[in-house]
Design a protein around this nucleic acid. Structure first.
Length: 479
RNA sequence: GGCCUCGUCGUCUAGUGGUCUAGGACAUCAGGUUUUCAUCCUGGAAAUCGCGGGUUCGAAUCCCGCCGAGGUCACCA
């Protein structure tokens, strides 16, 4: 394959369609586009592919841009920032496509097609019945010039199709998969311009990628089979063919392409759940690539430095939320108290906690968090009143023992306060009365926190303060 | 169905002819960190390298065939 891109500035792009929520698969692809571009001091471009007016969703573009901003993947050029190759929205580039598609027609690489949908459906039906691959039969390729002119004059609806040569091997060297050969026998005369005047993806993507000087097309595996169409278009124009790299697709548990039915595919969901963007990106990196030193906790900066296509994974990884949770926990634990607090406040349902009180609580909670959204559940007993689980408590000791113990604890706190000394005295008390230490402290924990698991008891009591602690303890024995 | 891609522990992966009785991580199990949970530490179980042939003194690694999974075959991207 002839290629002059080697000396050009590296430029990659991500080209999402504004058809719904910002998709996790889009982010996955973009980290590779971004890393490769940055590694080579190149540019990473965000282009919006909104040529399908039926599936267009209002506000989707803004959501995509915000999701990328959250993830920290900042494009060098995009519809919102602009750039040298504006506009970056395909719907605003219609005049460009028209011009180039007309050029293709004049070069005889493309042709007008006036076939009705009914006729198309019919030949399709026959082909399927005869078990041959459904393909357009090139009927309109042989239209006479005056016929075409008349149809155009009559405003007869038309599309423009790519004239795909018959039985030709299209060869390209994928940066991840090596040489791929696809014969044009399996390729239809792709529509380039739709009746509504919009180009199809295939036309727009090639024209834009060329005009925007994209050198490396890094995208999902689902595009492999249409790559020959794109190559044919590049060749028809006489343009340099960019490098292609096809990433494997993220999978559901059942191995199908990752989808809403089985997974949370919206980037927004991960933000709402309280995944840190750095953790999500780290996880996505791991799914598609392996570090030469085997390191699994890796930042985007490090990825940019170490990335190479040869270490990109070929198999389609199953999205495993358990591992993401682990990574997220690692990142949360690495946060400074100040940063944790800053990040967690949007997730807090308790809005009027004293700052210093929140600090004390967070110190006890940080290493127990896997997701920021877990915070409310984890700290509720510090803030709200609790239900004392009497059944659990009296399942451990008898009512009489419990009353005796609690009374003593209150006495100890009255006398010594909450500190290591008083804890030691509690322990001795338990020992002297032959209470199992674990059980002994468990009933205190249950009485004070309302739950079987909590941060270390002494610390918890200390943060809660002796007034609240005593109030909860007495509530248990007074009812 | 045609074409294309892929196939190592449950999951993500390392591995590019001998150092592989296949290494790491998550999850899981057991123990420890003189009270729970979490963190941390230690250890265990877990992959006949999809299957069958070949090449070779020697194959997860090379070749052939098969099987399985996925993708794609739209006036969607």
């Amino acid at each position: 394959m002839k290629n002059n891109n080697i000396q050009k500035k590296v430029r990659t792009r991500i080209a999402p369609s504004p058809t719904g929520d910002p998709h996790i698969g889009t982010l996955y692809q973009s980290i590779f586009d971004y890393a490769f571009a940055k590694q080579n001091n190149g540019d990473f471009i965000l282009r919006i592919e909104d040529t399908d007016r039926d599936r267009f969703v209002k506000g989707a573009e803004e959501n995509i841009i915000n999701a990328f901003k959250w993830a920290g993947i900042v494009p060098d050029e995009s519809p919102s920032q602009g750039g040298k190759y504006s506009p970056y929205r395909q719907s605003e580039r219609l005049y460009i496509y028209k011009k180039y598609i007309n050029e293709l027609i004049s070069r005889k690489s493309a042709y007008y097609c006036f076939c009705s949908k009914e006729r198309l459906a019919k030949i399709r039906e026959i082909q399927i019945k005869n078990k041959v691959q459904p393909k357009y039969d090139k009927y309109c390729l042989n239209l006479k010039k005056d016929e075409i002119d008349k149809n155009l004059e009559d405003n007869k609806p038309y599309v423009v199709r790519l004239n795909v040569p018959n039985d030709t091997d299209i060869i390209f060297d994928d940066l991840i998969r090596g040489r791929i050969i696809i014969n044009t026998k399996s390729i239809d005369d792709q529509i380039l311009l739709k009746t509504d005047g919009y180009p199809t993806y295939h036309a727009a993507v090639v024209i834009d990628d060329h005009l925007m000087e994209i050198t490396h097309i890094i995208r999902g595996e689902e595009w492999i089979s249409s790559t020959p169409k794109h190559i044919l278009i590049y060749k028809a124009f006489g343009w340099d063919i960019p490098y292609f790299a096809h990433l494997s697709l993220l999978r559901n548990r059942d191995k199908s392409k990752v989808s809403k039915r089985h997974n949370n595919t919206s980037i927004d969901w991960y933000r709402e759940e309280g995944y840190l963007p750095e953790a999500l990106i780290n996880y996505l990196i791991l799914l598609g690539w392996s570090s030469p030193d085997g390191k699994e906790i890796i930042s985007m900066d490090e990825f940019v430095r170490k990335f190479s296509f040869s270490r990109v994974t070929k198999g389609g990884p199953i999205f495993d939320i358990d591992k993401l949770n682990w990574i997220n926990g690692v990142y949360i634990r690495q946060l400074s108290l100040l940063n944790l607090k800053k990040l967690i406040i949007p997730y807090l349902k308790y809005k009027d906690i004293k700052s210093s009180y929140l600090d004390s609580i967070l110190k006890l909670t940080q290493e127990r968090l896997k997701k920021l959204s877990e915070i409310n559940d984890l700290i509720s007993f510090f803030i709200e009143d609790i239900d004392i689980p009497k059944d659990l408590i009296y399942g451990i000791f008898s009512i009489n023992d419990v009353k005796k113990i609690i009374k003593n604890i209150i006495l100890i706190i009255d006398k010594y306060g909450i500190n290591e000394e008083s804890e030691q005295i509690m322990r001795e008390y338990a020992l002297n009365n032959n209470y199992k230490i674990g059980d002994f402290f468990m009933i205190i924990r249950l009485a004070i926190t309302g739950r079987k698991a909590s941060p270390p008891l002494l610390d918890t009591m200390y943060v809660l303060g002796d007034k609240k602690v005593k109030e909860r303890l007495s509530r248990l024995i007074n009812t």
